[in-house]
């Protein structure tokens, strides 16, 4: 197939074929990171800007490494050191950046829909690096890539997502992506952290975490989104950890070859114990590794379709 979209704003707008095409493209790029010389000339002469209005370690670094391994030039802008602090609006920032002719702008913003607004204003490709509680498409794509790599398939799996679902753009994007496949998606967490009518997205809700993890192929843990007021939805961190923290006893209830995922950053001792996070079932660092390959694939496809 041919990639035709200018932007990657969310999983919601993608077809199953487009999702699979991104994963397939990413597979070809993964090998580059294992080489001694981790660089190919593919995006030589392209300029990629990361515009992050929220903190990030993984996503921003991952995009920058992906772009650099493809020989693109990268510029990183974070809100705290930009003219945002002087009162410049997103629109003006975008228009000014556009005048410097970047090929791709990757934006993270606390306002849902900010990347969509940006995409409508400028000719450069826009990638959503996370917009509020809305979507985080590249995270979902690297999660699917990791599941497919570890399980050899997506169809027929039971995938459990546990934690602060209501504030989680990772959960939302993953659900949008996974429901293209024949999977059993179960969401678990405190009732206050479950969005109303969650079932309408095609998932099951199970408040009892012990029941939720039974026979799971994949357990995806989420952290409490403190920056979005997550802690005010629960009586205490200690209670949350007791009821919804992933422990070795949960692993025993899941399938023997269960994989444990987490988009990071992890809050050790809250949603996951050290023992599980660093244990043999954890693929948390594989997710990070695959993130670079997936982002290389996305940057390649978007740069190609835009020119």
């Amino acid at each position: 197939m041919n990639w035709v979209k200018k932007d990657l704003l969310g999983i919601k707008g993608l077809t199953k074929e487009e999702i699979l095409f991104i994963l397939e493209t990413a597979e070809s790029f993964k090998e580059i990171s294992l080489r001694e010389i981790k660089k190919v000339p593919t995006l030589r002469g392209k300029t990629i800007i990361t515009l992050f209005y929220e903190p990030s370690t993984r996503t921003r670094t991952s995009f920058e490494i992906a772009a650099k391994r493809l020989s693109a030039d990268t510029i990183n802008i974070s809100a705290s050191t930009s003219s945002y602090v002087k009162g410049e609006t997103l629109k003006d920032t975008a228009k000014n950046l556009e005048s410097m002719r970047p090929d791709v702008i990757i934006i993270r913003h606390s306002m849902p829909g900010a990347p969509h607004m940006l995409a409508g204003m400028i000719d450069s490709s826009v990638v959503n690096g996370g917009d509020g509680s809305h979507e985080h498409p590249t995270q979902a794509l690297l999660d699917l890539y990791t599941i497919k790599e570890k399980k050899g398939r997506l169809d027929g799996l039971k995938i459990v997502i546990i934690g602060d679902i209501i504030h989680s753009r990772v959960a939302r994007s993953n659900i949008f992506a996974l429901r293209h496949f024949n999977v059993d998606i179960v969401c678990s967490g405190p009732p206050t952290m479950m969005p109303p009518n969650l079932e309408e997205l095609g998932v099951r809700v199970e408040y009892d975490m012990n029941k939720a993890v039974e026979d799971a192929d994949v357990i995806m843990m989420l952290r409490i989104q403190k920056e979005r007021g997550g802690t005010s939805y629960i009586p205490s961190i200690r209670e949350y950890s007791t009821l919804y923290g992933l422990k070795a006893s949960h692993i025993e209830r899941a399938k023997k070859d269960v994989i444990i995922m987490h988009p990071g950053p992890i809050n050790r001792g809250v949603e996951i114990t050290d023992e599980v996070a660093d244990g043999p079932y954890s693929v948390i660092l594989d997710q990070v590794e695959n993130g670079v390959a997936v982002r290389m694939g996305i940057l390649y496809l978007l740069t190609g379709s835009a020119s």
Binding site: N2, S28, E31, G304
Partner: peptide, 13 residues
């Protein structure tokens, strides 16, 4: 590469 319509990249092995 970018004169073509995004050619599919396949694996080097």
């Amino acid at each position: 590469i970018f004169k073509l319509k995004t050619p599919a990249v396949k694996k080097t092995d």
